[in-house]
């Protein structure tokens, strides 16, 4: 077990280091702001005093490394700073804490992504597995062409087609997925139906193709041919010989696609005006509300890193070479 443990620890260390560097990149982006930025935020009429005060608040008067560690320290305590919006030239400040803006929306996004994953992951694994097993049949070709078309299509195209049919022509679902904290679960599910369906279509296509490729790759191993020549039936080959070696590639496929899902929500949230973190980020980018952008970017990156880390750890704990060292 020691080999497994040390490999996991190494991988964890790498994950933390990556997160650290990523946070540094995200942080240093604020230093790249053009000089006139304070004016852009506060307006042309800003007085010298308000500008200086604002710069001081941003900590632009301190050296960058100091600011970075202060920032990391407060982020670790859940403090992402204060939003840029709501300020004006006179120095009046009605801005809100970034955390208060981000948190409720983060839960909404996780809800949407979770609902999608629950449908998409099993469906994609099933389609990918069957396409790999019955490869080069008509079934395989149809599934292949359909998924190739889907992955080539922008998310918003899929979204608007669904809206056209299921919200406009036959209004079964709402085209606006506006929910808030008071919305009941059943109502929530009803409202996120179209965004979740859009995401499902996109994710299933990607994931099914990757699953198919991973399984076909596995089935080309000499030990699978050996199993055939030992008289194993098709189901035995899959369950007994391929599956125990398939966890690592399958975990990688799932993690990759969940990570993709997290990013894919941005566009879909905007189409359906869903109050998630993606839409928040796009709004913040448009209004150049840097603290909010930073917070969102950090959350997205952390999710991404965490998912890949999980996949790698699943790969490690199912690797017989590590489980049973020489």
């Amino acid at each position: 077990m020691n080999a497994v443990l040390s490999t996991i620890l190494k991988r964890l260390g790498l994950g933390i280091a990556t997160l650290f560097v990523v946070s540094a990149i995200i942080f240093s982006s604020i230093s790249m702001l053009p000089g006139d930025f304070s004016e852009a935020v506060l307006g042309q009429a800003a007085t010298k005093e308000t500008v200086t005060a604002f710069r001081k608040e941003l900590g632009l008067d301190k050296p960058a490394p100091v600011r970075y560690f202060e920032w990391v320290g407060s982020v670790l305590q859940g403090d992402f700073g204060t939003s840029f919006s709501g300020r004006n030239a006179s120095g009046q400040d009605r801005s809100r804490q970034v955390v208060d803006l981000v948190m409720p929306r983060l839960w909404n996004t996780l809800f949407l992504a979770g609902v999608t994953a629950l449908i998409a992951v099993p469906l994609a694994l099933f389609l990918g597995l069957t396409a790999a097993l019955y490869r080069n049949t008509a079934y395989d070709r149809v599934v292949n062409a359909a998924t190739l078309t889907t992955i080539s299509t922008p998310e918003f195209f899929v979204a608007y087609i669904l809206i056209l049919f299921f919200a406009s022509l036959w209004p079964v679902f709402p085209s606006l997925a506006n929910i808030d904290a008071s919305t009941a679960l059943g109502e929530r599910l009803y409202r996120v139906a179209l965004p979740a369906l859009t995401l499902t279509l996109v994710i299933v296509a990607h994931m099914m193709r990757m699953t198919r490729a991973a399984i076909i790759n596995l089935l080309a191993s000499p030990y699978i041919e050996m199993a055939r020549l030992k008289g194993a039936s098709r189901s035995e080959i899959i369950l007994k010989h391929a599956l125990p070696n398939a966890w690592a590639p399958i975990a990688t496929v799932i993690a990759f696609n969940l990570a993709y899902l997290v990013v894919g929500v941005v566009v879909v949230e905007v189409v359906f005006v869903y109050p998630g973190i993606g839409q928040l980020m796009v709004d913040a980018v448009t209004s150049r509300d840097i603290p909010v952008v930073q917070a969102c970017a950090l959350i997205f990156a952390a999710t991404y890193i965490l998912l890949n880390l999980t996949a790698d750890i699943i790969g490690i704990v199912t690797n017989p070479r590590l489980l049973h060292p020489r």
């Binding site: 191993s221 000499p222 030990y223 050996m226 055939r228 020549l229 030992k230 125990p244 070696n245 017989p320």
Partner: peptide, 19 residues
């Protein structure tokens, strides 16, 4: 296969299931 006719492959390392 595997009962009345058996096969011994060239690359033993690749032909055994690692799991």
């Amino acid at each position: 296969w595997g009962t009345r006719i058996a096969y011994v492959a060239q690359s033993a390392a690749a032909s055994f299931n690692p799991a």
